[in-house]
């Protein structure tokens, strides 16, 4: 899918954990790769994330989660996005943080095409996004 403007990315942190170093590193490297990045800050509810995606009309949503609540929270976020008429096939979803190996398939099935665990190279995330929009 080609865009006629810079890729706009939302980096959001759902769940209760308060560590956002990783999210900020990703945000900065996407900026350096020419993308326009909005970071929500920590402890966002599914409603807040979906509403932000709606108002900002982003092309990409990246979720960073360390609390282990991904299986519970991710479907809620997708539902809130769909409730707002956001077509999740047109928005590229990825996630990072701590997603145990046995959950990766389920998370991908939900629509998160990219899963980037701890120690992922930000260049892989950039490539993942650029490939989708080329």
């Amino acid at each position: 899918m080609k865009l006629n403007q810079a890729v706009k990315v939302l980096i959001a942190k759902p769940g209760l954990d308060g560590h956002d170093r990783g999210a900020k590193v990703v945000a900065r490297s996407l900026r350096d790769a020419g993308m326009e990045v909005i970071y929500t800050g920590i402890r966002q509810t599914p409603k807040m994330i979906a509403e932000t995606a709606l108002q900002e009309d982003v092309n990409v949503v990246g979720l960073s989660i360390l609390s282990g609540a991904h299986l519970e929270i991710f479907p809620k976020i997708i539902k809130e996005m769909e409730d707002r008429d956001i077509n999740i096939n047109e928005v590229l979803l990825f996630c990072g943080g701590i997603i145990p190996d046995e959950d990766v398939e389920r998370v991908k099935k939900m629509g998160f095409h990219g899963v980037f665990g701890p120690g992922s190279d930000t260049r892989d995330i950039i490539k993942f996004i650029n490939d989708f929009f080329s």
């Binding site: 810079a6 945000a27 900065r28 996407l30 900026r31 350096d32 790769a33 020419g34 993308m35 326009e36 990045v37 909005i38 970071y39 929500t40 800050g41 966002q44 509810t45 409603k47 807040m48 509403e51 932000t52 108002q55 900002e56």
Partner: peptide, 26 residues
């Protein structure tokens, strides 16, 4: 340099995101 941007204003107002009367666009 990169033409990219960190749109950092929103985070300061983010707690108002869900308010029906508010719409924030970066």
């Amino acid at each position: 340099f990169s033409q990219g941007a960190i749109l950092g204003d929103r985070i300061r107002m983010q707690d108002l995101t869900n308010n029906e009367l508010v719409f924030i666009r970066s």
